[in-house]
C-alpha cells in the first residue's frame, strides 16, 4: 500500500493508502476532516472542492496517491485565529447558504475566483461558479456574497 505525505490545514500527515482511495475519502474518513462533504460521483456538484497547492480541485476526482506531497486547504482551514475568512463572512452577511451542504465547495471556489479576478462582474462570478451546484439558494445571494467577499478580500490585501 503506497505511503503518502500530505499537509492538510497546516498539519502534516503520513498515511498508507489503498490506490483507489479518493482524496475526499482520505480527508473525511482517515483524517476526520468531515467539513468537506461529497455530493456526487461525476465531479458535477463541486461540494467537495478544496485547495490543492493553492488551486481548487474536486477532491472526489483526485486519488489520495495523486495528492502525495501536496498542501491542502479545506473549509476547516480558512478561518484564522477564530475569525472567519472574508468570504465566509460575506456568505453569512448575504444569506448565501441555506442547508449549507454546497457551502464548503462554494466558498473555496469563490476564493479561487476572486484570487484570479479580484473585482469580478456578475457574469464572471456566475461563470466562475459553474462547477458548483446549489439546490437551495437559486445562487442570487451567492453571487452577492462573492461580490462582497471580493471587496473585503481586496481591502484585506490593501491593509496588510
Amino acid at each position: 500500500m503506497p505511503r503518502i505525505s500530505v499537509k492538510v490545514d497546516g498539519i502534516a500527515y503520513e498515511e498508507d493508502v489503498e490506490p483507489r482511495l479518493l482524496l475526499v475519502h482520505l480527508l473525511r474518513e482517515r483524517l476526520g476532516k468531515t467539513g468537506t462533504p461529497a455530493g456526487c460521483d461525476t465531479s458535477n456538484c463541486g461540494a467537495c472542492t478544496v485547495m490543492l497547492d493553492g488551486k481548487t480541485v474536486k477532491s472526489c476526482s483526485v486519488l489520495a496517491v495523486q495528492a502525495d506531497g501536496s498542501d491542502i486547504v479545506t473549509i476547516e482551514g480558512l478561518a484564522a485565529n477564530g475569525s472567519l475568512h472574508p468570504m465566509q463572512r460575506a456568505f453569512h452577511e448575504e444569506h448565501a447558504l441555506q442547508c449549507g451542504f454546497c457551502t464548503p465547495g462554494m466558498v473555496m471556489a469563490a476564493i479561487d475566483l476572486v484570487r484570479d479576478t479580484p473585482d469580478p462582474s456578475e457574469e464572471a462570478i456566475r461563470e466562475g461558479l459553474e462547477g458548483n451546484l446549489c439546490r437551495c439558494t437559486g445562487y442570487c445571494n451567492i453571487v452577492r456574497a462573492v461580490k462582497r467577499g471580493a471587496q473585503e478580500m481586496g481591502q484585506a490585501v490593501k491593509s496588510s
Binding site: G46, K55, D112, L113, D116
Partner: peptide
C-alpha cells in the same frame, strides 16, 4: 472546457 476546478487538474 468543464469548470475551473476541473481545468486545474
Amino acid at each position: 472546457v468543464a469548470d475551473p476546478a476541473v481545468r486545474h487538474r
